[in-house]
């Protein structure tokens, strides 16, 4: 499989340290290069690489299409994975991670608007990157600090029961695909 990149390949500085590189193609056909250590942070991608039998010799000739993740999110994800590829394994978290403070570099990376963060979390969930998921959740959790219930409703976009009922009624009143 060989796909011509439509945008310049993302060259993250740390990529050069590692001889084994993989190519990933986002849903909008942007091509990214990622090192072996970095790609291992994504369980989904690493399982795919293992199942496809990609090796150091053939990896760059066989880009991996990821249809559920667009170029913008993939760029963030590649940057994150390259940044954290040599991190020591985290101890297993307990349920409340009260002392865990987001590093400044990551806070900057995740300083994006709510809709972008929503899409990034969906991509992170699909690619199964636990560390990035934890960091995104920390950002979302921090939004809730010292907020009243009604402020939480606005931040997290939670409809009232009456709004939910109205939505359900309008969904059941609207004609189906054949109507």
């Amino acid at each position: 499989m060989s796909v011509e990149p439509e945008v310049p390949i993302v060259q993250v500085e740390e990529v050069r340290e590692n001889p084994v590189l993989y190519k990933i193609i986002s849903s909008d056909n942007h091509v990214f290069t990622i090192s072996e250590h970095a790609v291992k942070l994504s369980k989904t991608l690493w399982d795919l690489i293992t199942n496809l039998g990609l090796t150091a010799e053939n990896a760059l000739d066989n880009p991996i299409p990821v249809e559920n993740v667009n170029g913008k999110n993939m760029e963030t994800i590649v940057q994150f994975c390259e940044r954290h590829k040599y991190d020591e394994e985290e101890p297993e978290y307990t349920n409340y991670i009260r002392e865990f403070v987001l590093p400044e570099w990551d806070r900057q990376l995740l300083s994006i608007d709510n809709e972008e963060l929503f899409q990034l979390i969906l991509a992170t969930n699909y690619l199964d990157i636990q560390k990035l998921m934890d960091y995104c959740c920390r950002v979302i959790g921090d939004m809730a600090k010292d907020k009243t219930p009604e402020e939480l409703r606005i931040i997290y976009g939670i409809p009232t029961d009456a709004e939910d009922d109205a939505l359900e009624r309008s969904a059941s009143d609207s004609p189906g695909p054949s109507g």
Partner: peptide, 29 residues
């Protein structure tokens, strides 16, 4: 942000990062 549009596994991940009183407050909404 549409919290309830996240997959359940993501919703659970987010909730575990919240203090219990915030989880309780969210449950009232």
């Amino acid at each position: 942000m549409k919290f309830l549009k996240f997959p359940f596994v993501v919703q659970q991940e987010i909730l575990r990062f919240l203090d219990p009183n915030l989880v309780f407050n969210l449950s009232l909404l």
